[in-house]
Design a protein around this nucleic acid. Structure first.
Lengths: 215, 215
DNA sequence: GCTTTTCCTTGACCCGAATCAAGGTTTTGA
DNA sequence: TCAAAACCTTGATTCGGGTCAAGGAAAAGC
């Protein structure tokens, strides 16, 4: 219960009002996941959707030839698997915890009844629409930007304008998140280090220059 | 008013119930657009969202260096610009009619009041979520499939399993829709013709082989 | 109908990044 | 603690597809 208290105070479910967060908490339950734990698989039947409280969750899709591509890295405060609420009850993506994470699980019927209340449903629709904006941006990125741009965009999206970043993802995961291979990322980091643009040691990234490209 | 009657009978707004369609019609107005007419620009302030009744609408985003990338080609029955309803009142994409089209316009306050009704709002949320599924598929496509795959995927999405297709888009627009250049599309069509996979003359495409790749 | 613009095609060229391979390093879990 | 597994790096190679250029076809506008 202590943990729940802490959850209330963290800014989970970005954009939701305090009151609506409380309601969510009353209606769901906390689940602690370990690194690499599978929350659900693409194609699984299910009736719950989730909120990431701490840690990171990777949403992936698998291509026919077995390649996994990352749709989004969920960070604390974001909801995921909300598509389960209104369409077929099959998850369209796989969700894996990339680090030990706390996630909050809410069942479909509980949630649907929450939607009867106007302010709650507006918060919810807003979060859906925000994700839609994100996804269109993502498409734009993949289409016109190269790997370097995508790396910086990813870092900015995850950490804002911080210059010191502690990453809980492996380089391999970062590579996947920006739609490239570990080899390419490795070479990119080498080059950026030489050019004194950043340093990347273990889990710690330091940005040495202010990159205010207007992406 | 005649036109409105016809609209009612066409299956517009995919997934909405008959009753909810009627409500929409009462609350909006029809707008007829000509080819290349701009419906709104990325960055414009606005308070309406739209439903495509006939024709096609291209949603694009512009990169800093002026390149236009197509986020989605809207086909009849689909809604667009719904993001305007709940976030900042600025369109995140540009919408251009690619052929003479009928589109239906509904203002924000009118629509919001419709949302008070449960069945209506469930239809709406469902359509949001469907679009979200589409966008995640799109990301998957751009990441792991080549131009050929993307072309066939686009045709399938727009026309189902038809083997004779009359296209209202130019090749240039198709190229943009699948995230490539006219040159590459041109070469691709040449190759596919030689291999007797399809023929593409003017606006008419004929698929000569059944391509049931499980994309 | 004629002119101007836009669109389509084809060729030459180039580059970013994927793939394959292989050795080194770190992490994990029995 | 030690072996196996996963991860990271670096090199060599290949290729899809973008860009530039330029001529021809089609469409749009007057």
């Amino acid at each position: 219960m202590n943990k729940i208290e802490r959850i209330k105070e963290s800014g989970f479910v970005t954009g939701f009002s305090e009151k609506n967060r409380e309601k969510l908490i009353e209606n769901g339950k906390l689940r602690e996941t370990r690194k690499k734990e599978i929350i659900f698989l693409e194609g699984d039947r299910g009736h719950s959707f989730y909120i990431c409280i701490s840690g990171n969750v990777q949403l992936t899709k698998t291509s026919p030839d077995g390649k996994e591509i990352v749709i989004k890295v969920i960070k604390p405060g974001e909801i995921f698997a909300e598509v389960i609420l209104f369409e077929k009850d099959i998850y369209p993506v796989t969700a894996i915890a990339v680090s030990n994470s706390d996630i909050f699980e809410i069942s479909k019927p509980d949630f649907l009844s929450l939607l009867d209340e106007k302010s709650f449903r507006e918060d919810f629709i807003r979060s859906l629409i925000r994700k839609q904006r994100y996804l269109t941006e993502q498409i734009k990125y993949l289409t016109i930007h190269d790997v370097e741009d995508r790396l910086f965009n990813f870092l900015k999206e995850q950490f804002g304008d911080e210059t010191e970043i502690i990453l809980s993802l492996s380089k391999k995961d970062v590579a996947a998140a920006i739609g490239t291979t570990p080899e390419t990322l490795s070479r990119l980091i080498l080059r950026l280090s030489k050019e004194n643009i950043l340093s990347w040691e273990g889990k710690k990234i330091t940005l040495l220059k202010n990159l205010n490209k207007d992406y």
